[in-house]
Computed example of a mutant assay.
Amino acid sequence: MSNIEKLLSQKAFNSEYTKGLVSLIFVGNWIVSRHQQFFKKFDITMQQFNILRILRGQHPKAANINMLKDRMLDRMSDVSRLVERLRKAELLERKSCEADRRAVDVKITPKGLQLLKVIDEEIRQLEDSLQALNPKEIAQLNKLLDKVLEQY
């Protein structure tokens, strides 16, 4: 009996594909839950962290809402709402774009950069979710996931 079958009190799956999908969903939910707990202590969400990381990568240049939407891990996020919350927390600034008044430029603030610096010092705690895999296995996992993502 495999771990997923034990965890779910599941008899044998109909196929290895079904077992693989269920395992991916289960592991994905477990990892998301760990991330949510981790970011709670910084008073931000995973999606807000994702936006701050994107903005840090753009720094010192500004980003716009569409670019943030395109680069988000969670494509269902309401980016405008997330940006507004981060602005209220003074982790980013938002202003009208000089070139296009309909667009909005978004930049990370020094306070946002400092928060990411603090998070970076502790984020390794999340990587231990995959410590059961050795470097060769994690490379293989990444290749397999890339192969699945070719369909995306």
Rank of each mutant, 00 (worst) to 15 (best):
S2V: 06
E5D: 11
K6E: 13
K6T: 14
L7A: 13
F13P: 06
N14K: 15
T18P: 01
T18M: 04
K19M: 15
G20M: 14
L24N: 15
I25Y: 12
F26N: 07
F26G: 06
V27Q: 13
G28D: 12
N29P: 04
I31K: 08
R34S: 07
H35N: 12
H35I: 15
Q36R: 13
Q37D: 13
K40G: 01
F42Y: 15
I44P: 03
T45W: 14
M46H: 04
Q47Y: 07
Q48Y: 03
Q48T: 08
F49M: 12
N50M: 00
L55N: 00
K61H: 13
A62W: 06
N64D: 14
I65E: 08
N66P: 02
M67P: 01
M67I: 10
M67A: 10
K69G: 03
K69N: 07
L73Y: 04
L73V: 13
L73T: 09
R75Y: 13
R75C: 09
R75M: 14
M76G: 12
S77M: 07
L82V: 02
V83H: 05
E84W: 00
E84C: 10
K88T: 05
K88A: 11
E90C: 06
L91H: 01
L92M: 08
L92Y: 05
E93Y: 00
R101W: 07
D105N: 14
K107N: 11
K107P: 02
I108V: 09
K111I: 07
G112M: 01
L116F: 03
D120T: 03
E122C: 01
I123W: 02
I123L: 03
Q125Y: 04
L130Y: 14
Q131P: 02
A132L: 15
A132E: 06
N134K: 04
P135K: 03
P135E: 11
E137C: 00
E137P: 02
I138H: 03
K143E: 10
L144Q: 10
L145I: 08
D146T: 01
E150K: 15
Y152S: 05
